[in-house]
């Protein structure tokens, strides 16, 4: 097969696929951030640490209890989500009447604690997590060789993103959620238990981050700082997309992942900064973000 712009197609499509996977992670994480921010008015700085916890709990399940990947996909979001609910009930709920900034500072502190504890326990070097037997190997697509696990991650992320979008935008439960985002007092006066909804929403957002962590475990090494740098990139993604629209978060996440992947092929030096550069450009042209409402 001929080269495309002087790049062998296998390298190009391989990086595109990896970009798509990173984009899926950006989409899943920024989706969780947006849902939490909508209802709690808190930017969850702990999100990166909770993504890391997801990967670690999966690792612990496998190495300590012999519980494999498929069960981990189910168990991990629930357990890590429960720790999120504990955090919300004991700490976050005291901050709702205060300035947003305190929520950011509190969750930053919690992230430091979680990351520090894991670093003391497991060191900073990564731990390997094997690909489940059913998804080993790859498929020849004609134009490229695709590792099965990577294809699976893209598909399952898309499904989860779209399911979240469907629940929030198209179901009755979602309409309560959207209404409570606009005016919690009014929704509460209709007899809906808003505080419980807030707690469960936080648990759901955290569970989504943990789920992403399980998906990431076989691709990246499981390490205590895997979420620390990622969360800053996701913040940039959120600034670019704006947090007003669920579909906006999904599209921005995937789009930026692909752009980052292409940058790795054509100008690798800029691959770690390209998303920040795009953020600068968006701030100059459309300060409210691509899908954001000015407020």
């Amino acid at each position: 097969m001929p080269d495309i712009f002087g790049i062998p197609p296998q390298a190009l499509f391989g990086q595109l696929l990896l970009g798509l996977i990173n984009g899926a992670f950006y989409a899943l994480l920024s989706l969780g951030l947006a849902v939490i921010f909508g209802l709690l008015n808190i930017i969850n700085f702990t999100h990166g640490a909770q993504y890391m916890m997801g990967a670690f709990v999966a690792w612990m399940l496998l190495n300590w209890l012999g519980v494999g990947y498929w069960w981990a996909l189910l168990i991990v979001p629930v357990t890590v989500g429960l720790t999120g609910i504990l955090i919300e009930r004991t700490m976050l709920h005291r901050l709702y009447k205060l300035d947003h900034l305190y929520g950011l500072l509190l969750t930053f502190g919690i992230a430091l604690i979680i990351q520090g504890v894991f670093r003391n326990q497991f060191g900073s070097s990564g731990l390997p997590y094997g690909i489940p037997a059913q998804l080993r190997g790859g498929t020849d697509l004609g134009f490229m060789f695709m590792p099965n696990y990577r294809g699976w991650v893209v598909v399952v992320s898309l499904v989860v993103c779209l399911a979240t979008w469907f629940v929030i935008e198209k179901t009755k439960l979602g309409s309560y959620l959207r209404a409570a985002t606009e005016n919690p007092a009014l929704v509460q006066s209709f007899g809906i238990n808003v505080p419980r909804m807030i707690t469960l929403t936080y648990g759901f957002g955290v569970g989504l981050a943990a789920f992403t962590g399980v998906l990431a475990a076989p691709i990246y090494q499981v390490s205590p700082l895997m979420g620390a740098d990622l969360i800053i990139i996701v913040f940039a993604v959120v600034v670019i997309g704006g947090m007003g629209s669920i579909m906006g978060s999904i599209l921005t996440g995937f789009g930026l992942g692909i752009i980052e992947g292409l940058t790795k092929v054509f100008y690798p030096e800029a691959s770690s900064t390209v998303i920040f550069v795009i953020m600068v450009i968006v701030l100059l042209i459309k300060p409210a973000g691509l899908f954001g409402r000015a407020r």
């Binding site: 700490m91 901050l95 509190l106 930053f108 502190g109 604690i113 504890v117």
Partner: peptide, 14 residues
């Protein structure tokens, strides 16, 4: 030290 810093953050904010 990082953990202690995190704990101080939490205590001060709360």
């Amino acid at each position: 030290v990082l953990v202690i810093q995190g704990v101080i953050f939490v205590i001060v904010v709360l």
